[in-house]
Design a protein around this nucleic acid. Structure first.
Length: 327
DNA sequence: CACTTGACCTGTCCGC
DNA sequence: TGCGGACAGGTCAAGT
């Protein structure tokens, strides 16, 4: 469920914490979480300095520079249940990270912390780390650590050259960023309704795929997942089952606007916590509680017209919509 | 070729 | 209490 807003919130936190830091160690506890680790990264990552943290679609990207000056990108995809949690060095007081049983040590005291410098906030949803879902741990020279937790082991790390062919391929595969300044209804139309070659007489084959399936396709638009597809379609008053090819210009305008508004609103709320999403400090996001209108609310009444929201399946995903005001 | 479905995983929730 | 099964959904391979 980490989608664009969740990954964006995590990246902002990591940027503050990691830029300028130098990696001192990498522990891969589950091999599938960093498939190529042994071949390429085992001796390469320690010594690398973090020069930036970016997001592309649902990917978090740690930009690294190795001692020889070569630039690398460490890609992290959280998939369903991945978490990236940063823990500052707690004045070396947190010895073995495993020890709720110990009493003598002033307990895992939580230094109120206004930011990363002092540790982590007491309202963190995540306890002592590593825990049983920890897959990768990256240590830094100042003794802080970045934990990659992932219950379902769908997420992964991948190290690529910043300017290599792999990078080009991965960038060009993803569709445009809906929050980039250049994103508007015309761009959305070009992605949803690509101008097919029109043979005179034989009109181009209109895409029959549902608008929801298209929104979930990362090659069409980058970063939209199930939550924001449903929320945007509701805000734009569009039936998720409609063929993408059938949207009119006014409908495309509503949808483009709804996508931007819903995604930005969620970033402002700290993202959506449906199951186990937390930000870089272990804090949950509040979008679902504060501003979501349909996701997870099947059977409840439509906040716009009062009709009962329907839960169904579109594009293989659980989908909630209002049968009365979405057309 | 366009599109849909199944597999990958594990934790949670529900009914029996 | 314990167990089986459905369900959650991002992405890719396989199927229609």
């Amino acid at each position: 469920m980490p989608e664009l807003p969740e990954v964006e919130v995590i990246c902002r936190g990591l940027r503050q914490a990691l830029v300028g830091q130098t990696i001192s160690s990498v522990d891969v506890l589950v091999a599938r979480s960093f498939p190529a680790y042994n071949e390429q990264a085992v001796g390469l990552l320690p010594g690398c300095r973090v020069t930036g943290v970016k997001r592309r679609g649902k990917l978090a990207i740690l930009e690294l520079k190795d001692p020889s000056g070569q630039d690398w990108c460490l890609l992290v995809h959280l998939r369903m249940t991945g978490q990236l949690i940063y823990r500052a060095n707690l004045a070396a007081s947190s010895g073995p990270a495993e020890g709720p049983a110990d009493a003598p040590a002033d307990a895992p005291e939580q230094p109120s912390a206004g930011g990363f410098a002092g540790g982590y906030p007491s309202q963190s949803l995540v306890g002592a780390l590593p825990d049983k879902s920890t897959r990768v741990v990256i240590g830094f020279e100042d003794q802080s650590r970045l934990f990659f937790n992932d219950q379902r082991k769908f997420g992964y790390f991948k190290l690529i050259l910043a300017s290599g062919l792999e990078h080009e391929e991965f960038v060009s595969k993803l569709g445009p960023e809906p929050l980039d300044p250049g994103f508007d209804w015309r761009l959305l139309r070009s992605r949803l309704q690509p101008a097919g070659r029109q043979k005179p007489g034989q009109g181009q084959r209109a895409s029959e795929a549902s608008i929801k399936a298209k929104l979930l396709d990362q090659q069409v638009i980058a970063g939209v997942g199930n939550i924001y597809a449903d929320e945007s379609l509701f805000a734009a008053r569009l039936d998720p089952r409609r063929p993408a090819s059938s949207l009119t210009v006014p409908e495309l305008k509503r949808l483009a606007e709804a996508l931007c508004e819903r995604l930005q609103r969620s970033i402002d709320d700290g993202g959506s916590t449906a199951r186990n999403y937390v930000d870089a400090l272990g804090l949950r996001g509040e979008f679902l509680d504060l501003h979501a209108q349909v996701y997870g609310r099947g059977g409840q009444s439509c906040p716009r017209c009062g009709q009962t929201l329907q839960k169904t399946r579109v594009a293989g995903r659980g989908t909630v919509y209002c049968p009365k005001c979405q057309h």
